[in-house]
């Protein structure tokens, strides 16, 4: 108490804190956050390229955790058409992962394809669109779009083209690809049924003499059955997949859309 009433502050009186400098400093622009900007909205997509067509497919369920948010939320988007209903589009994008990022990604790519068409007077080729999509994804390398994209269309020779991506833009052209929640369930099935992996010619020999079953492009009806079977299987084994199956068949005559029911349990 004596110190409190001392008349001699210098000797034994109270002291004061003069330093206003922060005791710790934070790098410029650093942000502390408890907010998780990402969510996983489940669902699965699939694309298979044929000789003169490409089939894209996705279920229509939108989940968050164990809840079904919507039973009809399409994951397939026509890209680069000139009208609101995209009736003259030639490219299809499928996105699965975080739905809001998927939607934003689709809007970006669609706007870019439209700008390309206005500037050059012709629609973007799938190849160019595929490269551009990779760039868009990589531009957000450090705050990525959490979306697994697949781009489908017909290449310059009229053959089916499927490009698959990871969330930061690494991509390759493939014969077929499954993405999303049930990708690990569908992909091995596709390896076996599309690329004939682990299928051998009966009686062709033993061990190294075994001959692989020769690969051939599948027909459209075969692929459609394959897609349906793949999703029926996925619905059975994965809770985030179901409700409806949306298919888009891209041919030289345009894009045909097919909606089929899936189990809603």
């Amino acid at each position: 108490m004596a110190a409190m009433f001392s008349q001699n502050p210098l000797m034994n009186g109270p002291n004061y804190s003069f330093s206003d400098a922060p005791r710790f400093s934070v790098p410029e622009g650093a942000r502390e956050h408890r907010f998780d900007p990402y969510a996983d909205n489940g669902g699965s997509t699939l694309a298979i390229a044929g000789a003169d067509f490409t089939i894209m497919a996705g279920d229509t369920r939108l989940t968050s955790g164990y809840s079904i948010n919507s039973r009809y939320h399409p994951k397939l988007y026509k890209i680069g058409g000139t009208t609101a209903d995209q009736s003259d589009a030639t490219i299809v994008l499928s996105v699965v992962g975080f739905a809001a990022d998927g939607e934003a990604l689709k809007e970006r790519l669609d706007a870019i394809c439209k700008m390309y068409r206005y500037r050059h007077g012709k629609p973007m080729s799938v190849k160019a669109c595929a490269q551009r999509l990779s760039t868009i994804l990589y531009q957000k390398r450090f705050f990525p779009y959490y979306a697994y994209a697949i781009l489908g269309g017909l290449d310059e020779e009229g053959k089916g083209a499927v490009y698959s991506y990871d969330p930061v833009g690494s991509y390759e052209r493939e014969q077929c690809r499954a993405a999303g929640a049930a990708a690990s369930l569908i992909m091995p099935f596709l390896d076996n049924q599309v690329n004939f992996k682990n299928q051998y010619v009966p009686g062709s020999g033993e061990g190294h003499n075994l001959q692989e079953r020769p690969r051939r492009p599948l027909t459209r009806s075969e692929v459609e059955v394959l897609v349906k079977d793949a999703f029926d299987g996925a619905v059975e084994r994965h809770i985030e997949v179901g409700d409806g199956l949306q298919m888009m068949v891209i041919t030289k005559d345009g894009i045909e859309e097919i909606l089929l029911p899936l189990k809603r349990d």
Binding site: A3, M4, N15, Y16, S17, S19, D20, A21, P22, R23
Partner: peptide, 13 residues
């Protein structure tokens, strides 16, 4: 300023 002996050293943060 608040006195250190009453309020403790001031936290400039």
């Amino acid at each position: 300023r608040p006195r250190d002996d009453v309020f403790g050293p001031y936290d400039p943060s």
